[in-house]
Design a binder for these strands. Structure first.
Lengths: 290, 290
DNA sequence: CACTATTTGTCCGTATGTATG
DNA sequence: TCATACATACGGACAAATAGT
């Protein structure tokens, strides 16, 4: 077996002393839950392996056995592990089975493929004055309404992305609410006569608040990948502002960086045609469209 | 008109405003603290503006006034606001004057520039058997030690990235511990005779655990941008595995997507030479009040 | 078959923290 | 500020299921 308790204990003492802290506002059992969940998600505890016992965990993290028990029960309630008396706690979570990996190359293909292979539900669709940030990004009057749409995209039956889009009103009126609920926004923009030229996007991270947590099926305080993108038409006119929030356990952003010029040139660029050696990328929902 | 008032009202109720939830593990005052902090960070409450009163906040979020007061006090303790009796609660947070934005173009230039403009502290440097995931990524024997380095990169005096790198032992022995503490790893790899060819990276998000929170200067449970990258030399040999964790308030990943071919081609690619119109890139958050 | 060690499940009593009115 | 209700966390004790000797 790969599981040598002594070696594992020694290593984790040398390298990673993950700890929980009583002074923090979040309860101990939930801190412990997060630590253990991270270990499962990162493959430290692979599928089928046995987690340490309540007693060992309680000792390692300096908490009572009841606290360790509760953290393990929360893991079981979340579907990461199964617990059996006398047998232990076994990992039943398989990481990348339901994961979507989007490649930065072929953005539009990805969106189209997703539009076909995933479903989207429209949570909101209205015209309202934009926030200061959106108004500046779209270069429009903060007092004039713009079209706002809030959508959640599903893989199978599980949501993985929460999209808030803003489009200038004159462009937004070229398509209907139902069309937006069924077709990719970029397709509708094209059909509206917009010549999409380029986009500027910023990738960050944030926490799920109650507004997001419900529709995305995560608990408040979960980490989310945040992408903010402004799409420009020919002539530098901004035509779309989108704030996308992704569940990192179901969606990650992948790209290949290749060197420009010969080996001595000090420049990199993302390649648009990555090599096909993908040990990671063999995900079920990632097929190229002809 | 497309705008039906009743429909709009119903919809905006579906896309809920931020709320706090008694059932969640984190205490109400901290949930409220996170919500208000997010609003400050995202510019809903800009620098110098007045936050709603305790009474209004308590009403809006359906909590007692004491809970609202405590959340505001935590904001004050964190330095986001100042509170004065009879005057109210005023935002004093100046968003991201110290924010770093890395562009996907010119990766190496960025690293070199950062190496000059930022300082790095070496937290760990040793040789040890790699984890299962690293061993697979580096295509090496899980039992044979590889070089591991843990570094934290500072902007001014504040840390913004936590880097854990793994390099095959034969390559790692080509440079010393002190050299790693002062020079970019890619430079050292080149000097070691490695012809760096391309890299594959995956971007996600995660929560800060106790292991990371301390060195990065954030509290446990904070959101982090997570980039996992494998660098390959000529001939597809993997030479470096890096797991980078970034504070999203100090670092974001920015890129420009430009269309390939003419306007009808359905393909996008990141551009290596973006246009210079950067309304965003000058100041991270809009703070142009003179 | 018993015997034992391990592991999870359940219960108690108590102290502290959180949230409300 | 105070009193009340509930959640969290602890140490301890015992029962029940499992696996190995």
């Amino acid at each position: 077996m790969l599981d040598n308790p002594d070696l594992t204990a020694m290593m984790s003492r040398l390298a990673d002393p993950p700890t929980v802290d009583q002074r923090l506002p979040t309860p101990l059992y939930h801190q412990l839950y997060v630590v253990l969940r991270n270990k499962i998600l990162s493959g430290v505890h692979p599928l089928g392996s046995l987690l340490p016992s309540e007693q060992r965990i309680a000792g390692e993290f300096q908490v009572s056995r009841i606290t360790a028990k509760r953290a393990l029960n929360e893991l079981a309630a979340s579907g990461f592990v199964v617990r059996e008396r006398g047998r232990g706690t076994r990992v039943v979570y398989q990481a990348s089975a339901t994961m979507v990996r989007s490649r930065v190359e072929g953005l539009l293909e990805n969106l189209l493929a997703m539009g076909l292979e995933t479903r989207v539900s429209l949570l909101a669709f209205d015209y309202r004055p934009p926030s200061q940030e959106v108004a500046q990004a779209l270069d429009c009057d903060p007092a004039a309404p713009v079209q706002r749409a809030v959508r959640v995209r599903m893989l199978e039956t599980e949501p993985f992305s929460h999209l808030t889009t803003h489009v200038p009103a004159d462009i937004g009126r070229c398509y209907t609410r139902d069309e937006l609920a069924s077709q990719p926004l970029l397709t509708l923009l094209e059909r509206s006569g917009v010549r999409v030229d380029h986009a500027e996007q910023t990738i960050g991270a944030t926490l799920a608040d109650s507004e997001i947590a419900g529709p995305l099926g995560v608990e408040m305080g979960s980490p989310l990948l945040r992408i903010e993108r402004v799409v420009y038409a020919r002539g530098q006119r901004p035509v779309e502002h989108i704030t996308a929030l992704y569940r990192p356990d179901r969606y990650q952003y992948q790209m290949t960086l290749t060197r420009v010029g010969d080996g001595r040139a000090r420049s990199w660029t993302p390649s648009s045609h990555p090599n096909p050696t993908d040990t990671h990328c063999s995900t079920p929902t990632q097929e190229e469209t002809p």
